[in-house]
Amino acid sequence: MQSFTYERAASAEQAAAAVAAQPDAKFISGGTNLLDLMKLEIERPAHLVDISRLPLDRIEETAAGGLRVGAQVRNSDLAADPRVRSRYPMLTQALLAGASGQIRNKASTSGNLLQRTRCPYFYDRNMPCNKREQGSGCAALQGFNRTHAVLGASEACIAVHPSDMAVAMAGLDARIETISPGGETRTIPIGDLHRLPEATPHVETVLGHGEMIAAVTLPPPPPGRQVYRKVRDRASYAFALVSVAAIVEKSGDRIRSARIAMGGVAARPWRATEAERTLAGAVASDGAFTDAAEAALAGAVGHGGNDFKIPLAKRTMRHTLAAAVESA
């Protein structure tokens, strides 16, 4: 691990200013991803600003009837919150499908959103990786790429965003509140937080240097039954090959509306808007679910090792939609 200096932030504004003041400074919260990467010298911050004790650890009701989740709320506390469990069960399911009990006790809400990919070539400093070292190439394109993206990838990068939580939040239309070094705040729809790789996969979000996530706001729970389903190589403590978060609202035997997000398929949680359009007004049936799945994956491109993800994602979506309408 490279040497760094450490400070504990006194306030959100001070933390943002402290990171902005040094080009190689970083926020640290749970540290479960950052320290792992620092040990491997993939991340090499010169200064760490510890934001884990900022008073951003509450979950509050919003006037609109939703919840405002502080950026420092731990993944385990968010998953266990009775309001989240009853009103946003898909979010609890997604959180509990990720990582281990120990890591969920440490990992923060904002850190979960900003975690880096687990692409093995990103982790291997002997291999080219445009995300780790701009312009060095992508070893995954011709390499071991069974865990990689089938949607929204580029010739520069086919890595996926590893979060489960973010997939559920994308389906719930969460909004990300940030604070900048000057104290300004802004709100970013979760679908706009992560960038697709295009030619600059090392730039992963729209956040500026020193801009800190303060909270995630969940709109009131949309009508319909929520289901999060994750498919992975082992039954626990593994990243998603494919995951689907779905909320389906029925009216009689028809689907009034559906919200669908996918994980494990792209560099960001992937909102399947085409599939949602296909389902709106359709009779709830396996045929409609199949049409939705085909629409969601219409633009999918495999890279050899991950070709299986395309049919797997379709089947997972059909299965998840069926589960969501069962008692919707």
């Binding site: 640290i28 749970g30 540290g31 510890d50 120990q102 890591i103 006790n105």
Partner: peptide, 19 residues
């Protein structure tokens, strides 16, 4: 490396002593 911090289990390898 699991230890308890304020009663909660964490991986002590993935956190800094200073924190």
């Amino acid at each position: 490396c699991t230890v308890l911090v304020d009663g909660r289990r964490i991986n002590s390898c993935l956190t800094l002593a200073a924190m």
